[in-house]
Nucleic acid binder design. Structure first.
Length: 720
DNA sequence: ATGGACAATGTTTTT
DNA sequence: CATTGTCCAT
């Protein structure tokens, strides 16, 4: 089979581009993954490049896996030896291999944002700083920015007094990372870039090896990644990058879409190929998307087109607040599925902030419609999951004090703060890590000044130490699954986590899910498993075959596509977010975020705009998103609320009016959660109810029938 | 050492 | 309002 079959001329040009740098500017849905996978297949099959000499990097594991699957398919399994992975995972592997040239050991652990925060709090306390004026989060983000610019503490630029302090904090933070034998996310890139910069032998070895380098989502690279790529491509100069500046939504994380411009400057002979034909959306959806993004200044003009035809108009729905919004979404989805217009898995609901998922989740749960929440934090951030992972990390790397601190008294075994700080002090005196001392303790009792501790506390430490020693003895011969089972068994965590309550059962389920993930690793040792756990992306948690609507942030939606998309919370202050109001660049990024959301939709797009926003327990009127004004009215089907109702509610209520002294004219008879009886449809559940024009409008979910909106005065509903 | 009660605090997005 | 941290009593 000819691997160019089914590619349009621009795609073919990209796939078969000669050697040297290539920049592919790929609009949404223009088949960039297709181009990348075909390019790899072309290099291997037609140009007979060895897979071993090809490096392809992505940002999420999901994207990497998908690419790998497609390459293998194109090549009938002739892809053995290909290096294909995320930036972070690829760097982690390289650093483990080259650890001898670096100030840490090859069995380092990767600290996630949670660990970073805990470590930072420790540093701020240790240096006696006021956590109010030096908020751990904000100091961390300064440090992260510095690392993205490839700066270590000694290079940190000092302009204000604050910089001076941050520099000191940075220095101590970095020092602590090293004593824990740990790297944070930014370190993975930073150390790799620095290694290649400072060590010509290593650089040349890799630069010679990777004859071809391919990069996905190039607009999301930061300076460290850009440098990294330049070093790796420094020998063969065959660097093939694919990106779209209009989809740059991670500048707050250090991503710099100007790397695209930098690329053109640094590689003046680069071929530039534009992919504008879209294979995903209807022309109407594309026109809406272009109308929105065209408002951003300084863009390279791009004209998206499709052969799919106009399709239907997009739908704008105005709702009262987030509660009604959630009801509308769930009700519409139930209707679409019931009428056979869509399968549940065809639908996605997207929002600006994670907090917005809650109301939606409640509505789904209430209607008993299953849904899928996309987001790694939701699972890996669970306490019980992190606890078990902390045990594994400690076993992998006993110097990891943060993990030790987390599990040493879990389940409670009488080792409190006092006992721990004695252990810590004593460890410092011996010049070893607390974890090491624990192990020593269980082996040779003399190494600890006995008079420092009560016999009881001492016994407890020693017994934990011997448990740890036992696990360590098994570590290199056991699979992750076996190690998890040792831990669960020896610690009695099960009884602690599954305490017989409903939540306890859920918590245990989560641990079992982690256990299931571990069961996919058949080799002894924890490194690979722990790396995967540390580097999962939100998107990685979305299963392809899941037959339920997916809920996700707009950020998590990038790279995905769905026949039907809802974008909710289109209010000024939410999307665009309040914090972008004063910053023109940030506002443009908000617009790109909206653009990304719109272009996820294949056939039908719902935009939902609430008139009120609930925050801090108060409801306040909000303006609709300013972005909506940019959509030509001919492309949109508007469904707004009654004007009369608007006027009543758009006025700000004074506090005593909201406190319930002023009662509505009619009292609602049906409240969410009650069961009602309908003469035709039988028993149903009230999802939502509101007063309107002296009548009560009730949304009821009937089993086997679906959701119905009824006027209480007409439908003969009975309370059950 | 542990757990419960209250107070303060806060909403962007995440590899 | 809902989560997170801090203080205090057992």
């Amino acid at each position: 089979m000819n691997s160019l079959d089914g590619l349009n001329p621009q795609q073919q040009q990209a796939v078969t581009a000669g050697f040297g740098p290539v920049l592919v500017l790929a609009g949404p849905g223009s088949g960039k993954t297709r181009v990348l996978t075909h390019r790899i297949a072309y290099l291997i099959k037609t140009l007979e490049v060895s897979p071993y000499q090809i490096l392809a990097v992505t940002f999420t594991n999901k994207a990497a896996r998908e690419m790998e699957r497609r390459v293998v398919e194109l090549l009938d399994n002739q892809a053995e030896g290909l290096t294909l992975g995320t930036f972070h995972a690829t760097c982690a592997r390289l650093l483990r291999r080259e650890a001898e040239h670096l100030p840490f050991k090859s069995d380092f652990v990767i600290f996630d944002s949670d660990d970073q925060l805990r470590l930072m709090k420790q540093v701020i306390q240790e240096l006696g700083l006021d956590p109010k004026s030096y908020q751990p989060q904000s100091v961390l983000s300064s440090i992260s920015n510095a690392k993205n610019e490839l700066l270590l503490p000694e290079d940190y630029p000092v302009q204000h007094y604050r910089d001076e302090v941050v520099k000191r904090v940075f220095s101590r933070y970095q020092q602590l990372l090293l004593t824990n034998n740990a790297l944070d996310f930014d370190d993975l890139l930073l150390w790799t870039a620095r290694l290649l910069d400072e060590n010509p032998q290593v650089r040349e070895r890799y630069a010679r090896r990777f004859e071809h380098i391919l990069v996905d989502e190039f607009q999301d690279t930061n300076l460290a990644q850009y440098r990294l790529l330049r070093y790796l491509a420094s020998f063969h100069n065959n660097i093939f990058v694919v990106g779209d500046t209009d989809q740059s939504i991670y500048t707050w994380r250090g991503a710099d879409y100007r790397n695209v411009l930098r690329f053109e400057r640094d590689y003046p002979d680069a071929q530039v190929i534009l992919l504008e034909q879209n294979y995903r959306s209807t022309q109407t959806i594309l026109d809406v998307a272009m109308a929105v993004i065209d408002q951003n200044p300084h863009r390279r003009p791009k004209k998206l087109f499709t052969s799919r035809g106009k399709g239907e108009k997009i739908i704008l729905r105005e709702v009262y607040d987030d509660r009604e919004e959630a009801a509308f979404v769930v009700e519409t989805i139930a209707g679409l599925v019931a009428n056979g217009h869509a399968r549940p898995g065809d639908i996605a609901v997207m929002y600006r902030t994670n907090a917005q998922s809650r109301m939606l989740e409640e509505a789904f749960l209430f209607a008993k419609i299953p849904y899928k929440l996309v987001g790694a934090q939701r699972f890996y951030g669970r306490r019980e999951v992190k606890d078990v992972i902390a045990f594994l990390r400690l076993i992998h790397n006993p110097d990891d004090e943060l993990s030790l601190l987390r599990v040493i008294n879990l389940p409670p075994r009488g080792i409190g703060e006092k006992t721990y700080s004695t252990l810590r002090l004593e460890a410092k005196r011996h010049g070893i890590s607390p974890g090491q001392l624990l192990i020593e303790l269980s082996r040779a009792r003399e190494s600890f000044s006995r008079d420092l501790l009560l016999e009881r506390a001492y016994q407890r430490l020693a017994s934990f130490g011997s448990m740890l020693l036992k696990w360590l003895a098994w570590r290199d011969r056991s699979t992750p699954l076996e190690i998890i089972d040792f831990v669960l068994e020896d610690t009695g965590l099960r009884e602690f986590i599954d305490d017989g309550t409903e939540e306890g059962k859920d918590r245990w389920e989560n641990v079992m899910e982690l256990r299931r993930l571990a069961s996919e690793y058949h080799e002894p040792g924890l490194a690979d498993f722990l790396d995967q756990l540390a580097l999962v992306s939100d998107q990685d948690t979305l299963e392809v075959s899941n037959n339920a609507p997916a809920l996700m942030t707009l950020h998590a939606a990038k790279g995905l596509e769905f026949p039907i998309v809802f974008i909710v919370g289109l209010s000024d202050g939410v999307l665009p977010h309040q914090r972008s109001f004063e910053d023109e660049e940030a506002m443009q990024e908000e617009r790109r975020l909206f653009y990304v959301g719109i272009t996820r939709a294949k056939d039908r797009l719902y935009l939902v705009t609430p008139l009120h926003r609930n925050a801090f327990g108060y409801s306040e009127p909000v303006k609709e998103s300013r972005f909506l004004a940019d959509i030509p009215s001919g492309l949109i089907l508007e469904n707004r609320r009654e004007r009369r109702y608007d006027r009543m509610t758009e006025r700000s209520l004074s506090p005593w009016e909201t406190s319930g002294i002023v009662k509505p004219a009619t009292q609602a008879k049906y409240s969410p959660g009650v069961t009602v009886l309908h003469p035709v449809w039988g028993e149903g559940l009230v999802l939502n109810s509101r007063l309107q024009d002296d009548d009560e409008i009730v949304d009821v979910f009937f089993v086997g029938v679906g959701l119905k909106r009824l006027a209480a005065s007409l439908a003969r509903l009975e309370l059950k």
